[in-house]
Design a protein around this nucleic acid. Structure first.
Lengths: 181, 181
DNA sequence: CTGTATTTTCATTACTTAATGAAAGTATGA
DNA sequence: TCATACTTTCATTAAGTAATGAAAATACAG
């Protein structure tokens, strides 16, 4: 019933070991970055997989439940870090990861910008406006702080946007030139 | 017994409201960034406070326990985002925040680099070496992926280091020029 | 349609992380 | 050195987050 085409069949064991360590570390790092562990692990697994995998293969490989696998695969699709793939003559879906490092970087940058930078920017803008007309030394201090923060975060936001829109071939050489190697 | 010099005594209420919203939002954002909520709130409170505060004032203002306040104040001191201050003739410690946005940015950048980037870089380096001599197409693919990731992350690491070491007066004008405003 | 393969949902459970507050520890002034 | 003000610790509790897996929903082949 369960077919035995697991991704690691016949893999030399040292490669298997290295892969597993990569998957584990990538997952651990995920949590530090506010991305959940399983999601990062699935992403890692698909990044180093030579071929697209099914939900069942992901479950087997990472030893996780169906619900967990499904939820995190959907989430990854939502981020644009993996895509679904249908094989003609088969019912089940396959998943494959974006493997281009630059593209991964752009996707993650945009997503983090959207989720983390933009809400702060809105809040800072409001605080800055609200405090503009307040009287008193404390209020002026507060206003100054909001202005300083907003200007800075806004600049960072612009930089991220510009970079994430650029082509690798333009940015990397420039960065290497500017910041040495 | 409890002295009434709370930080917000006699604050116009609209300023108080704005401050509280800032503190709340900064705290919420903290969690998205892997920094705990209370730590981010204390940091925000001290950033907008006109004068240094004591542990008891922080407790009162944020409605948190002594243990919680103490732990997170220490953590912030560890990051270098706030510093302690002793007032002659008084036993208790006061805490004051670094308020310069550029310096805050540099501190946070260095800390995140140290905690999040460097361990990954080590791991990728090891994986890259381990897989260098492995045979087979899959192993070559894996090696290539590790190389691509390590080159990229290493470049990012260098850029962060260089920027965090630079002076605001050099970086900001350059960034504004390069990435438009 | 109807039966089966596959995917999705979601109430429950497990795990992880943070917060509490009393007790222990430390430092200071008299 | 004693009494007191203040700080730190840490076992316990609470809150938040993720994982499970069975049941429901969906899609598809015949």
């Amino acid at each position: 019933m369960k077919n035995k085409n697991n991704a690691d069949v016949a893999l030399p064991s040292d490669l298997k070991v290295a892969r597993d360590e990569f998957i584990g570390s990538w997952g651990a790092m995920g949590s530090a970055w506010g991305i959940n562990r399983t999601m990062a692990q699935i992403h890692a697994l698909l990044m180093v997989s030579a071929r697209p995998l099914t939900t069942d293969e992901v479950m087997a490989e990472l030893q996780i439940s169906r619900g967990n696998a499904n939820t995190n695969l959907r989430e990854l699709v939502g981020w644009g870090l993996i895509r679904t793939l249908i094989v003609k003559g088969e019912r089940k879906e396959y998943f494959e990861a974006e493997k281009d490092v630059w593209r991964i970087f752009c996707i993650v940058t945009r997503e983090r910008k959207r989720r983390e930078i933009e809400p702060i920017l809105d809040m800072l803008g409001r605080m800055r406006d609200d405090s503009r007309s307040m009287k008193g030394g404390e209020a002026q201090e507060f206003h100054k702080m909001m202005k300083g923060l907003q200007d800075f975060v806004s600049l960072a936001d612009n930089v991220m946007e510009k970079i994430a829109r650029s082509e690798e071939g333009k940015v990397i050489p420039f960065v290497v030139k500017t910041f040495g190697k």
